[in-house]
Simulated scan of single mutants.
Amino acid sequence: MNAALRAQQRYREETILSASPARLVTLLYDRLLLDVERGEAAQRAGDWQRANSELQHAQQIVAELSGSLTDDWAGSASLRAVYDYLARTLVGANIGRDPERTRECRDLIAPLRDAWHGAAEATAG
């Protein structure tokens, strides 16, 4: 790994280690949306290996987000149901090589991402 790549990796690590819980959630949502968009693009291009990789990473992020929910928050059950739906749909889109199902996930994730960003900004200010 060259010096520039090591510096980038170190910066990413420092960003994560120093981030607030709200910032961590927004970082996860940003990456989730990116993975799903890349997965869809790869599916549409017929690059099944890349699509698989992107969509599996997206599934891991959804599992992490779901696992971070606590039962003491009133919205946990509803959000967990959304995450369960996303996880099932991402798996189906990947196995079925279906970019339309992947697009459905993207369309569900984007407003959630925006809402989390808004909440993080509201609590920071």
Results as ranks from 00 to 15, higher is better:
residue 91 V to K: 05
residue 92 G to L: 04
residue 63 A to R: 09
residue 96 G to M: 03
residue 53 S to F: 07
residue 68 S to Q: 10
residue 51 A to N: 01
residue 91 V to L: 15
residue 65 L to Y: 06
residue 82 V to S: 05
residue 72 D to P: 00
residue 60 Q to G: 14
residue 53 S to H: 13
residue 95 I to A: 13
residue 64 E to I: 04
residue 80 R to N: 05
residue 85 Y to I: 03
residue 78 S to F: 03
residue 91 V to M: 12
residue 65 L to S: 04
residue 70 T to D: 13
residue 57 H to L: 03
residue 83 Y to V: 09
residue 80 R to K: 12
residue 78 S to Y: 07
residue 65 L to C: 06
residue 48 W to R: 10
residue 75 G to S: 10
residue 89 T to V: 09
residue 50 R to N: 08
residue 94 N to E: 04
residue 54 E to T: 02
residue 75 G to Q: 05
residue 49 Q to N: 06
residue 53 S to N: 10
residue 73 W to I: 08
residue 65 L to F: 08
residue 88 R to L: 14
residue 81 A to T: 12
residue 71 D to T: 14
residue 89 T to D: 03
residue 90 L to Y: 11
residue 79 L to D: 02
residue 72 D to I: 10
residue 76 S to T: 11
residue 58 A to T: 02
residue 64 E to F: 02
residue 82 V to F: 09
residue 60 Q to K: 06
residue 87 A to D: 14
residue 50 R to S: 10
residue 49 Q to M: 02
residue 86 L to C: 05
residue 68 S to Y: 02
residue 87 A to W: 12
residue 86 L to P: 03
residue 51 A to R: 05
residue 64 E to Y: 00
residue 96 G to P: 05
residue 57 H to Y: 00
residue 57 H to V: 01
residue 76 S to R: 06
residue 68 S to A: 15
residue 82 V to G: 00
